[in-house]
Simulated assay, not measured.
Amino acid sequence: KNYLRHRNLTLEFSERVNVIAGISDGGKSSILEAMKWPLKNTQGFGFRYDPVIAGDKGPAPKKEEMTSTILNFDDGTLMRQRNERGVNQYILNDDLKNPLEDLRKIPDEVTRLANIDEYNFQEQHDTYFLLQDTPGEVARKLNRVSGLTLIDSSTKKIEAMESAVSGEIKQSKKVIEEKEERIQGLDFLDRAEPLIGAIEKSITQREEFRKRRDTITSIVETLEDLTRKKEEVEDWLEVEKPYEELQALVDQREKEAERRKALSDLVSQIERTESEKKGVDEFLLIETPYNEICSLLHEKQDLREKRTRLVDLVKNIEETTGDLSLYTAHLEKLKKTYLEALQKAGVCPTCGTRWDKMDKKTLRRHLG
Rank of each mutant, 00 (worst) to 15 (best):
T77Y: 03
P107L: 01
P107A: 04
L92S: 07
F121V: 05
N98P: 05
Q124K: 05
V110K: 03
E123H: 05
T69M: 06
T127N: 11
I116Q: 01
N93M: 08
M66G: 00
I91A: 05
T127L: 14
L113Y: 05
Q89P: 03
D126N: 08
H125N: 15
R80L: 14
I91G: 08
R80W: 13
E118Q: 06
F73H: 06
E123P: 00
N98G: 04
F73W: 03
I91C: 08
V87S: 13
Q81S: 12
T77I: 15
Q122H: 12
R112M: 07
E65F: 01
V110I: 12
Q124H: 15
D102N: 15
I106P: 05
T127Y: 07
D102P: 04
L78S: 01
E65A: 13
Y90G: 10
D75C: 02
V110G: 05
N72F: 08
Y119T: 13
Y90P: 10
D95W: 01
G86N: 04
N72Y: 11
N115C: 06
V87D: 12
E84A: 14
Q81V: 04
F73L: 01
N88L: 10
E118L: 13
T67I: 12
Q122T: 07
K63M: 07
D117T: 15
Q89Y: 04
L100H: 06
D117P: 00
V110P: 05
K97C: 00
S68H: 06
L113I: 04
P99M: 07
N88C: 07
D94T: 03
D75K: 15
R80G: 04
M66C: 03
T77F: 03
K97A: 15
N93D: 15
D94V: 03
N93I: 09
E65P: 01
E118N: 07
I116A: 02
K97G: 06
G76I: 10
L78D: 02
R82K: 15
N120Q: 12
D126S: 12
N93L: 09
Y119H: 08
D117M: 02
R82G: 00
Q124R: 01
N72H: 14
N83I: 10
D126L: 01
P99K: 09
D102S: 12
E101F: 04
L71Q: 00
R85Y: 03
N83S: 08
M66W: 11
G76V: 11
F73G: 06
Y90I: 11
Q81G: 12
D74N: 11
M66R: 13
N98S: 15
T67V: 13
R112I: 09
F121T: 05
F73S: 04
N115T: 09
N93T: 11
E118Y: 06
T127K: 14
I91Q: 07
N98W: 02
Y90N: 10
D94M: 12
Q122D: 00
G76S: 10
G86F: 04
L96Q: 11
R80E: 02
D108H: 08
